[in-house]
Design a protein around this nucleic acid. Sequence first.
DNA 1: CTGTTGGCGGGACGCCGACAA
DNA 2: TTGTCGGCGTCCCGCCAACAG
Lengths: 592, 592
Amino acid sequence: MFCKTLTASDTSTHGGFSVPRRAAEDCFPPLDYKQQRPWQELSAKDLHGVEWKFRHIYRGQPRRHLLTTGWSAFVNKKKLVSGDAVLFLRGDNGDLKLGIRRAAQVKCGLPFSVLCTQSLNVGTVAAVPAAISTKSVFSIYYNPRANSSQFIIPFHKYSKSLNHSFSIGMRFKMRFETDEAAERRYMGMITGVGDLDPLRWPGSKWRCLVVRWDEDIVRNRQNRVSPWDIEHSGSVLASNHYLASGSKRTRTDLPSPNPSFPASNQAGLSDFGESLGFQKVLQGQEYMGFTSPYTGNPIQNHHQSEVRKCIPGWNDMGMARMGSGTVMQPGNSYVSYKGIGFGESVRFHKVLQGQEIFPKPSHERALGDKWVQDNGGFGANNGVHGSDVENGWPMMMRGGSTHVRQSGTSLQASSPSSVLRFQQANTPVSYSNSLYGTCHQKEEIKNSFGLCNASKTLGGTLTSSSPYGHQDTVEVFNSLYASKDQNEIGSLRPPVSHVTQKALRDSQGLPTGRSVCRLFGFSLEEETDVVNREDTITPITSSCITENLNLDILPSRVEQLQFKPPVLIETFGRSCTKAGQLISQSLMGMPI
Amino acid sequence: MFCKTLTASDTSTHGGFSVPRRAAEDCFPPLDYKQQRPWQELSAKDLHGVEWKFRHIYRGQPRRHLLTTGWSAFVNKKKLVSGDAVLFLRGDNGDLKLGIRRAAQVKCGLPFSVLCTQSLNVGTVAAVPAAISTKSVFSIYYNPRANSSQFIIPFHKYSKSLNHSFSIGMRFKMRFETDEAAERRYMGMITGVGDLDPLRWPGSKWRCLVVRWDEDIVRNRQNRVSPWDIEHSGSVLASNHYLASGSKRTRTDLPSPNPSFPASNQAGLSDFGESLGFQKVLQGQEYMGFTSPYTGNPIQNHHQSEVRKCIPGWNDMGMARMGSGTVMQPGNSYVSYKGIGFGESVRFHKVLQGQEIFPKPSHERALGDKWVQDNGGFGANNGVHGSDVENGWPMMMRGGSTHVRQSGTSLQASSPSSVLRFQQANTPVSYSNSLYGTCHQKEEIKNSFGLCNASKTLGGTLTSSSPYGHQDTVEVFNSLYASKDQNEIGSLRPPVSHVTQKALRDSQGLPTGRSVCRLFGFSLEEETDVVNREDTITPITSSCITENLNLDILPSRVEQLQFKPPVLIETFGRSCTKAGQLISQSLMGMPI
DNA sequence: CTGTTGGCGGGACGCCGACAA
DNA sequence: TTGTCGGCGTCCCGCCAACAG
């Protein structure tokens, strides 16, 4: 396999793709160099299974490998720009796979390398297992990013939105870019307020506002927006129904990223970024199907098994069961790291989404599953309800609509909520403004990361022991590449963890008993010569960050929590190694 | 103004647009014919306000008017094909407006003219006022169409979907076309079942299924589908949670339309099709904002006033107040017409949508408005609720989710429901398979069209007197052009009614007291020389089809109703006249 | 070894009048 | 009067080697 960051020439309309010599020789079928200008047709499939054909020619003076015909079509279709990267990967059976990775649109035009080369205080890493063992809080740095994910919301945007009420009839503005025009403000009116999916995420403010756009040109756009995405319109309608918030928001727009910056990946080959599993995670509310125990294809099965193995156990960890209304205070052992390296933790994003539905905790599962059997489905969400106050909507915001209290029922929710609490950073950094909080479901993500040990998991219930106790090293990668192209929603940086060959072998074929948190749930079975010997690699387990499955948090508490400036929560990563390539390759080789 | 159906040459990449001589002379600014090849730059705005520039040149031997530069860009952007039509319209102030109309994708490739030229039994028209006066049912033919609206669902599809249960985890297939591929089947899994918007349309099956697509390529597609859009997957998962329906549906796919057929509009100029107001209606569930009494622009204001004037009154019409559970039986005076002409009734579609929210009926408004004032909004939907059975969802289909009963509250809904009952046709026609029922909210639309008289409406409460009593003629147009281009969602055929100049004048400036149902709520004030004298035109009022605002229908009754094969409900129309042009022009001239 | 550049061939676009319906 | 066609100019895409870092 090889990965190359695209140059201006590679992406210009003027020519083709210059293939590094070694890459072509290693990865492409050999050419007949006796010919004057040897060439062949290459065919490679991307993660979607779409096949791309290229003319591979060896020519020029001096001779070099080029992809010509077919290349520009690929660039155009994928909307690649210089700084993006492509990865070619040849499977054992000789067929070629193809992936792309979008360039990071680094915040404020700061070169990514600048961020990465900041000093890493490795010593503080030790505080993480300490924090875990003492069930206290530790912090994770989250790399600043410009391309905001739909599911990661700048904290200041969110907290500002808390100060305003939104009512039907209210006019608003929102900035975005359409196919036809560059980014500008569009206006509209709020025509409804209510949960996007009250069944699965009751009380979520995520796209809770139903709107109508003034202009036809954006009518086919999503007609639901989130409160933090909009600004109040300056023109307040003369209406006695207007729920005035008093203050006219003047949105402080984030500085626009510098798109021309090629975020070259200094760290090596882990910059390959497409992962089906990962995107599933990121898609979160829109695409997640973890609600269901049914699976339709191998990938889903893997997901399912992964979730089942990893998640329920977390409930048995003491730190994950916080009492009703109890908010964990920051421990004295939290640490801050400055990240280097890339990648992103699948679990981390699961936490940040905060809205996905996991299987019911173990003590409720028997009943739940039986209910499902008896009733023909829908077990995953039965019993989801909340009081008027609980679900985070002030009464007046909900009208007489969705969240009617089910009277006479005790307060209990089987839909776990994840709340991450951002702590005040004691290590001020210059780019703290670029931090992102998260604002889903319960509008916060509250503390409580843990780590599930890939090799010490027992029978579907994880112990709370730290992987560090086994001399493993944990890597949590955190860089996210948002996709520029909706069709390329999968072009996201996968978590890159180093897994020994042994661990890989161990991770296979163990549906029960000693199970593992497999990376994305895929068995990492493809091993190549790239990985020479396992003892040359820092052994590490595939890591899962646990999430607090506290079911008893009162959502109403969200409004009561004092919002402090978010801490820079940062994971630390390693520079890319050969093992990183292994993971990437395994991901490429997975069944689609 | 002029309208021209595009020829193959007009839309080919080879050249420009040939402007009919008369059209250019009438509509475009004059050229300096003394020059060898006179030309000018034309600028026209479409309904979105987007400006299009064209080079207008007079050349060739013999001389002719052409649009060259800029034309192909327009064709490409609008995705026009031969058979589509463009309309140029010059306002009084001289500025040019521009509209397009998509060609009808006529069902089974049948030329539209064939459908249109079928004999029209004008005599049966008389039965309509008779039916109205006796408060009995009459029928409306609905023109067959291939491009199914999202909001008009083939009856057989809907009724089939009733025979199947849908549960979380169920696998399904669905046919559609993506940007990248022609129509084919995509597979997915149902991951949730619940109302799309429980606040405004509780119990609606419209897009009630939350799904996850197997393929990434369609992941960014709408993740909610309606039961009638999907087929069960052949591969039933081995799962004890599966709510087996037993039968494996084999969907009878509709014959594909013949896209090459240029549906030339024999009927003249009423084929202009873009109307903001109309599209608002058609957008229905997705874009309607009638919920709110607040308005943000003149158009919305017009809409609002129209609704307020027309709708509440209908509640006072005897036929509109059906008792709980009472279903009107077909009267003996229902009629069938075969339609000619084009256009579509705004009200008709409002009825078919069945899901929009109107202001509360008059007897509830005082309370409602006060509630709004006291509570800061959301008045339009307060009190919306229903029992578990009532809202149309079997208990098992809803899990413990949205529609929790508000215990101790009497059964009452301020969200009016519209139910249209299709009757058995006694006039079989060859293309009856192409009929469309409707499947929104209460899954039926039950009887009860009425007509509000544009000139005889009093004080916000319509009388039930028929306009025919005043020697007016009613036209209900019914042809719908679905848009091929999402950005052109507005490219829909507007209702075309003939309105006398007098009626137009009467319709203006009467906010209270003697009010009217204005066409779309727009005052049709633009009068041109095209309309010569009112007595040369068949006088007609702008017609509104009333809809049954029965508030007490038990939604559960939907399932109990026996479904009969739908009748061909057809409106009759007139071939296009100058008056039709007037309407079109008025629509073009309206503020955007 | 490979990124960039100029050369250049080919094809698509689109402006033109000829021609014919 | 106007729909279609062949002619042809222009532009851009993309294949090529030269050249330079």
